[in-house]
Design a protein around this nucleic acid. Structure first.
Length: 795
RNA sequence: GGACCCAUGGUCUAGUGGUUAUGACGACUCGUUUACACCGAGUAAAUCGCAGGUUCGAUUCCUGCUGGGUCCACCA
């Protein structure tokens, strides 16, 4: 079929997007005997729309998925969305104008599920499909759906039975804004401007000056510390210090953690101002005094400041200190404060009853588990190792928000015994459902209190391998995958310590094996300015506008411009280059097809030049395949593009023209040889490009070359062995060199490329010229050859 | 404070223990309209961040430094 004069990406992409879905070519084949290549995809957090980060990461992943599919693998590529926990809660509250606190959990989950299913997911999927992601859309999960709730609760019960979970009253990181416990991973440093206040304590009637940024915690002061090597304070050992404004006394103690340089070299320990305070409280068995309540207000022990918000209380206390002449000095400083990354609010340490997964004892194993997975690029594993080395807390999984997956737990009202749900009743909501037992095993109590908390999102997200496997339960394929790690997971480097780490941990705790064989870590797509895209910088570009303006292929082309793990700056130029490549492919195909109408696949003798370029191409197929194999799509793209554009289009097509247009002069044999070469290189170039730019390649392959099946389920080009003679490749390379030399000389002599020129070539080229002179003459408008001492050629 | 990544023509980038160091964009000089002006040819443009070391030979390997980025910890 002859291709249209111009390529209309909008029409074509829309058409194939629908066609692929209808024909189901990307579906996992449950009955197939083919080798399985499975992906455990990290579900994107639904924030309504697909953003550039998704588009970038998903494209990278799709390159390899398509490559593997064409290499005969049965692809298990599900699609999921993360709709669990706080971000979703916030989004639904905003979109639906509701307050989750005033609804029942059941009702709210129902609303979430409905909104997610009917509004967010369809919009998200549409964008992903437009991008050409070759997922199996039927294998879909959401991290809040019934299956995920069940699996997450099963996980909890399993870990509890394995003795890996405990619930204790413990100081934990608490966000007073979101009213929930948060985990170490959810912290983010933020610079705040604040005051370093020199405050007068009193020891034996004398002043003892202590610097603090948090005077509102004075009422929770339980000790003051100095460094044992600090001679200034040695004499204070064992004495008591009187806390200003509050008047109670606390012991003065030594600890080498105290920084001599900071402030006055003496520090107050409040339960709890920071992590060091917690350590000291534990180490010296200090009392616990709570100055701040869960809603961020001061408590009873703060006396007249009770009920004030932290920031307000701080100001008030400073005022009072000033008044009483207890404030010596105030220094403005900028300091980093731990904040909750979701809301940006400073985090407090507050005591409450929380569930933990015990894993601090497993650091060595965790490092070992990390080694069992193949990391691409390998240096990304350092982040994983580094994270483990820095771990200081067990994994706190309780969250005090209404939306999420509940703990499958009740407590005996009389003895507080933990009562687990029966695995058969999962998923369960203890607020609604009742335990399967009638009385407490321990004390025979008959009343049970449901756990109100829900599990942290990551506790569920870390189970995506189990969730995906569960999707296939009951199919013939299930047995093949159930006990095997997935082939690969791909994720951004920002979530190594969230998703990847937690998934590795849970997989090993539950099943004693790694979750995947390979882990691909991609970088970020940055704004045009090379900085992270953010609303405040105003450098955000939506994939939707790029898809509208350029199409999916150029956007994917852009995604293939950097090594795996490297960041890519969004570049209009690169998008333009992608678009030009699409056009070039279209035009080169249009031209070739014009001359291939009578082409028959028959045995022919190839011309020397044709053998040459085919031999070169053959070698490149090998290199390109290896690049894809090693997850180096950018390398594959580069090699292929250079060959296609610089060699095939710029040189070979020009050589072929004379033979194609003038078969009566050049001969039928020569024409057929050119046709063979054109057909071969073009067909295979389309295949090699197909993983990266699936739309244009599909259009040409199916409609131009009249193939009945999709290019995406065609077989990957093999590098053939017929032309294994390396000298063929040399012929092509030397031919191009001579071509280039001729052009150079003409340019130097200011002659048109059409004009003739007399040149001296080395004798060693004689053989080559004898074979290829007609092609050389055709492409350089040569008229004759002259023989001299050297090889004189009139071209 | 700990860890990691990066540094190559004006810009973006490939790559290697010995190469005339790759390509693209941009610049300049030409050409072309029978696939393509979203084209082609040619030219100029890089002492491969700095300083040492290993080596017959370093842009490439090692050490240190500088600059940029990222993660982690601390932050009274």
């Amino acid at each position: 079929m002859v291709l249209a004069k111009k390529y209309n990406f909008k029409e074509v992409e829309e058409k194939w997007m629908k066609d692929w879905e209808k024909s189901g070519i990307y579906k996992f084949q449950i009955n197939s005997q083919k080798k399985i290549y499975s992906l455990d995809i990290p579900p994107p957090t639904i924030s309504g729309k697909l953003h550039m980060g998704h588009a970038f990461g998903d494209s990278l992943q799709d390159f390899f998925v398509r490559f593997k599919r064409m290499n005969g693998f049965n692809i298990l590529n599900p699609f999921g969305t993360d709709n669990n926990g706080l971000p979703t809660l916030r989004l639904i509250e905003k979109e639906k104008n509701v307050d989750s606190k005033s609804m029942s959990r059941e009702k709210f989950i129902e609303l979430c599920n409905k909104t997610i299913k009917e509004e967010f997911i369809p919009m998200f999927l549409k964008d992903a499909k437009r991008l050409g992601i070759s997922a199996d859309w039927d294998l879909f999960y959401s991290t809040i759906d019934e299956r995920s709730r069940r699996i997450s609760q099963e996980s909890f019960i399993d870990l509890y039975k394995k003795g890996r979970e405990y619930r204790i009253e413990s100081p934990s990181l608490w966000c007073t804004e979101c009213q929930t416990t948060i985990a170490q991973v959810e912290l983010e440093d933020k610079e705040f401007s604040s005051f370093f206040n020199d405050i007068k304590f009193n020891v034996d009637g004398k002043d003892l000056v202590i610097a603090t940024t948090r005077p509102e915690l004075l009422s929770a002061c339980v000790a003051v510390f100095y460094n044992p090597i600090d001679k200034r304070y040695k004499k204070l050992k064992g004495k008591m210090a009187k806390v200003p404004l509050f008047g109670f006394e606390v012991p003065i103690m030594e600890d080498e953690k105290v920084d001599l340089e900071k402030g006055t070299g003496i520090v107050m320990c409040c339960t709890f101002g920071d992590q060091t305070d917690m350590e000291w409280q534990k180490k010296y068995k200090l009392p616990i005094k709570e100055a701040i309540s869960k809603d961020g207000k001061l408590t009873k022990i703060s006396g007249k400041y009770e009920g004030l918000k932290v920031e307000v209380a701080r100001k008030k206390i400073i005022e009072d200190l000033k008044q009483e002449k207890l404030l010596l000095n105030q220094k403005q400083i900028n300091h980093a404060v731990n904040t909750h990354e979701r809301c940006g609010h400073p985090v407090e340490i507050i005591t409450s009853k929380q569930w933990f997964i015990k894993y601090l004892d497993l650091k060595k194993d965790m490092i070992k588990w990390g080694k069992e997975v193949e990391w691409y690029p390998s240096h990304m594993k350092n982040r994983y190792d580094n994270w483990i080395k820095g771990l200081q807390w067990d994994w706190s999984i309780s969250r005090q928000i209404p939306f999420g997956i509940p703990f499958p737990v009740w407590y005996c009202k009389d003895c507080d015994e933990v009562i687990l749900a029966d695995e058969k009743q999962l998923p369960v909501d203890p607020l609604v459902d009742k335990p399967n037992i009638k009385q407490c095993k321990k004390c025979k109590g008959k009343e049970f209190i449901p756990e109100k908390d829900i599990m942290n999102t990551w506790a569920t997200s870390a189970l995506t391998p189990s969730i995906v496997k569960d999707l296939l339960k009951g199919t013939p394929a299930y047995d093949k995958i159930k006990n095997k790690p997935f082939s690969v997971r791909r994720s951004g480097h920002d979530i190594i310590t969230f998703w990847n780490f937690n998934t590795i941990v849970k997989s090993n705790l539950h099943y004693g094996k790694k979750p995947w064989e390979e882990l691909l870590i991609n970088g970020w797509i940055l704004g045009k300015d090379g900085k992270k895209m953010s609303k405040s910088r105003g450098n955000v570009i939506s994939p939707q506008e790029t898809l509208d303006g350029f199409g999916a292929d150029p956007l994917r082309y852009l995604s293939a411009s950097a090594k795996l793990g490297d960041d890519v700056s969004f570049s209009e130029q690169e998008l333009q280059n992608g678009k030009k490549l699409v056009t070039k492919l279209w035009n080169a195909s249009k031209f070739s097809l014009m001359h291939l109408e009578d082409y028959k696949d028959e045995k022919i003798k190839l011309e020397a030049i044709d053998k040459g370029i085919l031999s070169k191409f053959n070698f490149l197929i090998k290199e390109i395949s290896e690049s894809f194999e090693n997850y180096e799509a950018s390398k594959a793209r580069m090699i292929l593009e250079m060959f296609f554009w610089g060699q095939f289009c710029d040189n070979y097509l020009e050589i072929a023209k004379d033979r194609l247009y003038n078969p009566d002069i050049r001969g039928i044999k020569e024409r057929k040889s050119a046709q063979y070469t054109l057909n071969y290189i073009l067909t295979n170039t389309l295949k090699l490009f197909a993983p990266i730019i699936p739309f244009i390649t599909e259009e040409i392959f199916v409609n131009g070359f009249n193939n009945s099946d999709s290019i995406h389920i065609s077989s990957w080009p093999k590098h053939f062995t017929k032309l294994k003679d390396e000298s063929n490749e040399k012929v092509w390379e030397r031919f191009v060199e001579i071509l280039s030399f001729v052009r150079q000389e003409k340019s130097k002599q200011n002659k048109s490329l059409k004009e003739e020129i007399v040149l001296i070539l080395p004798r060693k080229d004689k053989e080559l010229l004898l074979e290829c002179i007609e092609d050389l003459k055709a492409v350089t408008k040569a008229k004759d050859i002259l023989n001299g001492r050297e090889l004189e050629v009139k071209l």
